[in-house]
């Protein structure tokens, strides 16, 4: 399942030139879903953590990396569970995926009408997402990487003042999860060419279990203060970024085996070392 160096270079070049188009082609090729999903290059940048302690840096440098241009689809996940029976719905251990794992699929190897092949896969656990990424020779993005990539607007590197993006983002947050998710192709690509970072599904990050409301908590009030809502905002640097709060809250609330109707993932990879 591992990608060859030649493919990596190819994917990188194509990703830069025409990333999203290649994905569409990848979906057509039912033989090899994982290898064909295109990646885009996210240039090195700076992630400003939403919350930090006094000892944390205000900014985190993020090296450039590659990120899947779109969330992993049901078709791609089907290829994975076909090759790895341990991750099929009927066989997975409850420790690694809770009882609603792939619940919207018709059966073990049939996504069915509630999970269109080209829609993002949801109801997948962190352990499953990680296993998928490993099988694809990739990994999950870190929080810093994901947020850096998702920080771009439709037209520029900084999406904070991108009105169109923010309108779409908050409209999405306000809508209930549709019973059947839309195809990944329907999401508008951002400046990096990555689709669906906002507006399709929530996504796992590799270090989700670092997301805890942070702060000096040696005192007895620690437990109380560490509830993510109120105390979280105290140390926050960008209180206008409501969506980022929601993502942080979601991450801090999850366990590695949890699955939800709106939580999917995409993979990342390091740039080839010279």
């Amino acid at each position: 399942m591992s990608t060859t160096p030649a493919f990596r270079l190819g994917a990188l070049a194509l990703g830069l030139l025409a990333g999203v188009e290649l994905c569409a082609a990848g979906i057509e090729n039912r033989e090899s879903k994982i290898e064909n999903s295109a990646m885009v290059l996210i240039p090195a940048g700076v992630y400003v953590p939403l919350q930090r302690t006094a000892k944390d840096p205000a900014q985190v440098a993020v090296a450039s990396f590659r990120l899947d241009a779109q969330p992993v689809t049901n078709a791609e996940f089907l290829a994975f569970v076909t090759a790895h029976p341990k991750w099929r719905r009927s066989q997975v251990s409850r420790l690694f995926a809770d009882s609603s794992y792939l619940e919207n699929w018709a059966s073990d190897l049939e996504p069915g009408p509630k999970a269109p092949l080209n829609a993002p896969v949801v109801r997948v656990s962190w352990f499953a997402a990680r296993a998928y990424a490993r099988a694809a020779g990739k990994r999950l993005p870190t929080t810093a990487e994901w947020e850096l990539a998702a920080g771009a607007g439709y037209t520029g590197l900084d999406g904070r003042n991108d009105e169109a993006l923010n309108r779409d983002l908050y409209a999405w947050l306000a809508r209930p999860v549709p019973a059947v998710l839309a195809d990944v192709g329907t999401a508008k690509p951002n400046f990096h060419g990555a689709r669906g970072l906002h507006g399709l599904v929530w996504e796992w990050v590799d270090d989700f279990n670092t997301a805890m409301v942070t702060g000096e908590s040696r005192g007895d009030s620690g437990l109380e203060r560490d509830l993510f809502c109120g105390s979280g905002s105290i140390g926050a640097n960008d209180t206008g970024n409501y969506a980022a709060f929601m993502r942080q809250a979601l991450r801090s609330s999850l366990k590695g085996n949890n699955t939800t109707t709106s939580l999917g993932f995409r993979c990342a990879a390091d740039l080839p070392t010279r």
Binding site: K55, G215, E216, S217, G222, L223, D226, L227, F228, S252
Partner: peptide, 9 residues
């Protein structure tokens, strides 16, 4: 949520 977590720095 984070209810059960005691943090230490």
């Amino acid at each position: 949520a984070a209810v059960l977590i005691a943090l230490f720095l």
